[in-house]
Amino acid sequence: MSESTRPMIQIQGLTKIYGSGASQVTALQDVNLTVNRGDIHGIIGMSGAGKSTLIRCINRLDTPTEGRILIDGQNIMDLKGAQLRAMRRRVSMIFQQFNLLMQKTVARNVRIPLEIAGVSRKEADDRVKELLKIVGLEHKARAYPAQLSGGQKQRVAIARALASDPEVLLSDEATSALDPMTTQSILALLQDINQRMGITIIIITHEMAVIRQICNQVTIIDGGVIVEEGSVDEVFTHTRSSAGRRLFGIIKDEIKEDEITEALRIVFDGTTRNEPLISSFILKSGMPVNILSADMHRIGGKAYGQMLLSLPESYADREKLTNGLREMGLTVEEVHTS
């Protein structure tokens, strides 16, 4: 296999069991996952699905019960001491709560990985400046984390994570404590880092918007098991798993049988421009359309998201609606919703 096509991370038969005996909890069950070099790979699931355990196994903050993890072809399961620490410098991590040292300035925080690596003082100072420039915080070098906003703290954490020149960046709910605007800017920064430095990024999240904005691959995890995986476009337009449908808001968390109704789901995957498609359809067909819900985002002038329409009673009207929308280039499917 050539250098460029060898997967960055391969997870094989990973199982993690906490506790023993009666109180035993299986957090992950036979997880197999491949992350390619240069990907931004999203791992999405509800709270307690096992996604945090999974990402913590990748840099061995957590030790799997069974299975293998290969990073760049190297099995990391047997690493100990200095070898384990060397591996962790190649696989950086950012966190939901930022985890910055509160008694040290921004510059000192970013310098820590360089200090550990034994980089000379002069060289480290230059590198810190460079890193702070990348995240747009060169003017905050002397500030303490308590003086920064959440978004700025995460930028410092990203600069710190990049200091060791990693090949992989693990992001554990890094935007979950941030407001939507700040989330957007942090995600844009991560995308920029991925493109400019070729760093493979693995993102853990429970928010579909995060996956849609920057990931190219997605893995849906539910109850410690992978239930769906593939390219983001593919998984989003043809969601098969019920966990996926819940995460995409097609069905609510707790539904009763009699609350389920049939609906038509339209997926906007960025291929349509900002056109009034539904209005056009109504005007052209003269058919009324009832919108049940819509969750749309505009990124770079393109429409992403989904819309749920109520299904007409008659079969003929259904056909007319479905075909009419498909002719306009939309991805349409019949779903059960709540």
Binding site: L61, F95, Q97, N99, L101, I112, I116, S164
Partner: peptide, 17 residues
Amino acid sequence: DPGLIEAAQSMGMSTFQ
């Protein structure tokens, strides 16, 4: 904060560091 210790470990720090 235990999160800081976890971050330190993720950076590849030794126990003494």
